[in-house]
Amino acid sequence: MKTLEELKAIRDKMKNQVGIRSEEENTTRVVVGMATCGIAAGARPVLTAFSDLVQEKGLGNVAVTQTGCIGLCMYEPIVEVMEPGKDKVTYVKMDAEKAAEVVEQHLIGGKVVTKYTIQK
């Protein structure tokens, strides 16, 4: 390593990875239902898609976690997005491609992807 730029490149790459270990108040939480019903319906690829994309895009204020059964087993895989100071948004019947859309439009763009949310 001979330049500050090289150091910065490593730093930026690692920041997204070690950033998961900070405990900030102002984080958006993405919670994936990972009970038996969720796993059976395919929640794991959804979870990994979210966590990979959030780190790839460097979304430092988003934490991806799992939770147990939310109670709507027929809608699994279910993903809840909780932004500080906003109402919870619940996405249902998710898969990895839909997850990518949610990351792009909701987490980055700030616009809820209504077509995947729970229908009244």
Binding site: L7, I10, R11, K13, M14, K15, Q17, V18
Partner: peptide, 11 residues
């Protein structure tokens, strides 16, 4: 060392 650099190490 990468993790240390990720926390502003060697800056």
């Amino acid at each position: 060392i990468d993790e240390y650099i990720g926390c502003d190490g060697y800056e």
